[in-house]
């Protein structure tokens, strides 16, 4: 590139050009400093992972889910946090050793919408806000229609979590994708990224907001809902902690839902309370996942709608009022 040709330059002498070349080298040096500083910042960012002291003194403690664990005494800190912070910590750590999984048997769903009602009640949702919604599906014109309850798939490669700019939505060690509405900035990138349309937004003041004012925020139940933030299915993380099945699973009158722990290879039917092997259930019934080609690796499985117990009928429920 020739200096004299740029619109911003004047006709500099050769000498000046030489000095400008030296300056360029100086700039290169600056870039080098930048690289070094970047590496330093990166290193300090990871030092926390390596730095762990051990005293050798082991203590036995009872965890939240009733397990005895051995912990190094240096790692034990008194929980002086208030309830909200405690909720947030537990809400991010999840229930150790678990990998929650849900199986939805489409042959049994007759769109009773009991799951939806239970869910909306628990999470203080308006009628048009669904963590769980039963869709009337027909895959191709030649195939039979069926009802498909659809909630957050709690993907193992969650596209929604990847795009969140502030870590407000996150995946827990036990597989649940949660949303912390105290941190959500309301950019709705996660909604755009979710291929399952599983996320909802509090466009207007949440239901009965006045009644829930000042209530302590429970990240595992995502209540009280907050204006201008995201909400979504949480696999009823609060119920799992108590050893109970999720609200929707428990509310189903038609044995549609199984819920359990993949690590235990067991799922429990919410209606009959029968516990069966997950692998066998999926194998015997041709279990599948929604849109596996997207690589999202859902934690919700579906059993195909064959030998349906109930005939398909067009949903007759009224569409919620405009909001």
């Amino acid at each position: 590139m020739d200096d004299s040709n740029t619109p911003h330059s004047n006709n500099e002498s050769e000498n000046q050009k030489g000095s400008s070349r030296r300056d360029f080298l100086k700039n290169l040096g600056l870039a080098g400093v930048g690289v070094a500083a970047g590496a330093a910042a990166l290193y300090s960012g990871h030092i926390f992972e390596a730095k762990k002291e051990v005293s050798g003194d082991q203590k036995v403690l009872l965890t939240q889910d009733g397990k005895l664990v051995q912990v190094d005494s240096l790692e034990i800190k008194a929980l002086e946090k208030n309830g909200k912070e405690l909720h947030e910590t537990l809400g991010r750590e999840g229930i150790p050793g678990r990998r929650w999984v849900m199986v939805t048997d489409l042959s049994k769903c007759r769109n009773a919408r009991k799951c939806i009602n239970a869910c909306q009640g628990a999470h203080q949702l308006r009628p048009e806000q669904y963590h769980m919604n039963t869709l009337q599906m027909q895959d191709t014109p030649g195939t039979a229609p069926y009802n498909m309850p659809k909630n957050c798939q709690h993907c193992d490669n969650p596209p929604c979590v990847a795009v969140c700019p502030v870590d407000a939505t996150y995946k827990r060690p036990d597989g649940i994708v949660l949303i912390e509405n105290d941190r959500c900035i309301g950019c709705r990138f996660c909604m755009a990224a979710c291929p399952y349309s599983a996320r909802i937004f509090n466009w207007i003041e949440p239901k009965d907001a006045a009644n829930h004012q000042g209530e302590e925020y429970n990240v595992e139940l995502n209540v009280p809902q907050k204006l201008g933030t995201i909400s979504k299915c949480l696999f009823s993380a609060d119920r799992l902690r108590e050893g109970k099945l999720p609200y929707c699973v428990e509310a189903c009158p038609n044995s549609v839902y199984y819920f359990g722990d993949e690590n235990e290879d067991a799922v429990t039917n919410g209606t009959t309370k029968e516990t069966v092997r997950l692998s066998k259930l999926l194998r015997d019934n041709g279990g599948y996942q929604l849109m596996p080609e997207l690589g999202t690796k859902p934690r919700v499985y579906y059993l195909p709608p064959k030998n349906r117990l109930f005939p398909f009928e067009e949903a007759k429920d009224a569409t919620p009022e405009k909001v």
Binding site: G97, V161, D174
Partner: peptide, 17 residues
């Protein structure tokens, strides 16, 4: 059975850390 936590590895969807 001692499967690793589902968030054990670095990933595009992991937290900042």
């Amino acid at each position: 059975t001692d499967k690793p936590s589902l968030t054990a590895t670095r990933a595009m969807w992991s937290t900042r850390d």
